[in-house]
Nucleic acid binder design. Structure first.
Lengths: 130, 130
DNA sequence: CGGTATCCCCTACGATACTG
DNA sequence: CAGTATCGTAGGGGATACCG
C-alpha cells in the first residue's frame, strides 16, 4: 500500500475501506450463518439432519451452501464417515469458537437495547403524517 | 460438552429462529448499515451528500432507504432544516452509539482472525478434487 | 443419510431519470 | 441539496424431485 501518500485524504473510498468491519460482517453475519454457528456451538457436533431439523425453516440446499461456505472460511469442520448409510458430522472449529465472546456481546446488547429499538419503531410508526 | 456456552441467553429461544441474536443481526448488520453507522460514528453529523460521497458506491435511493430504516430503529437521528436550499443532517443517536464497543470488538476480532479466514480459504481452494 | 439438480419467484439493488 | 419515481435485472433463496 505504498502508492498513496498519507496526506492524500480521499474524498470517497470504496465500502471495504469506508468501514473496516465490512469484510468480517460478510463472513460472520451473512444469511443463516448465525443460527448455524449458534447451533453448533450450543449443541456441539451435529449431523446434517440434526441441523436441518433444529433450524427448521432452512432448506437442504441452502443449508449445504452455507455449511460449505463456513467450512471454506475455516469456521466449521466437516467430517465424513464412509459408512453405510453415510454419516457426516459438523462441528465448530477453534476459529469459529473464537467468535463466542463476540456473539455474547451481541446477545448482551440485544438484551439491553432491543426493547428501545422496538419502542423507537412504535414511536416512528405512530407519528402523524407518514 | 462443557455445559452452557457463554453466548447462550437464559431467555426463551424461539424455535423458529434457533438463534437468539437473529433479530439484532437483522437490525444492525443488514446491508449498508455498518458503513453508514461507522461513518456517522467516526465523522459525526453529516449531510446527505457527505454520506453519499463517503460511501461512494451507494445510490441515493438505497441510502435513503437505509437511513429511514436506521431512523425508524432509533439508531440515527435525522434533522431537517427548512432552508433554501434545504439542509438535512444525520447523526448517530445515543442508542446507535451504544453499538460502538460492539463494533470495536468486531474490528478487533477481524484484526486478529481475518488472516486465518483468508488462509483457510486458500487451503480449501487448493485442495485437489473440488 | 446427505446431499444434487431443476425450476421458479421475488425482491433487493442498481441505473437513470426527474422534482421541490 | 435531498431526495422520488420508474424501470429493469441478477441472484439468493424456496419447492420439488431425484441420486449414491
Amino acid at each position: 500500500m505504498a502508492g498513496k501518500p498519507a496526506w492524500a485524504t480521499p474524498t470517497s473510498v470504496d465500502p471495504e475501506n469506508a468501514c473496516p468491519i465490512g469484510p468480517v460482517v460478510d463472513i460472520v453475519f451473512s444469511r443463516w450463518t448465525t443460527p448455524i454457528l449458534w447451533s453448533l456451538n450450543e449443541h456441539g457436533r451435529q449431523r446434517f439432519v440434526e441441523l436441518e431439523r433444529r433450524i427448521a425453516t432452512i432448506t437442504p440446499k441452502v443449508l449445504t451452501q452455507r455449511l460449505r461456505q463456513l467450512e471454506r472460511d475455516g469456521l466449521v469442520v466437516r467430517t465424513y464417515y464412509p459408512e453405510v448409510p453415510p454419516r457426516v458430522e459438523y462441528e465448530i472449529s477453534e476459529l469459529g469458537r473464537s467468535l463466542a465472546p463476540l456473539f455474547a456481546h451481541l446477545a448482551e446488547w440485544a438484551a439491553g437495547n432491543l426493547g428501545q429499538v422496538e419502542q423507537a419503531r412504535r414511536d416512528y410508526d405512530t407519528q402523524p403524517g407518514r
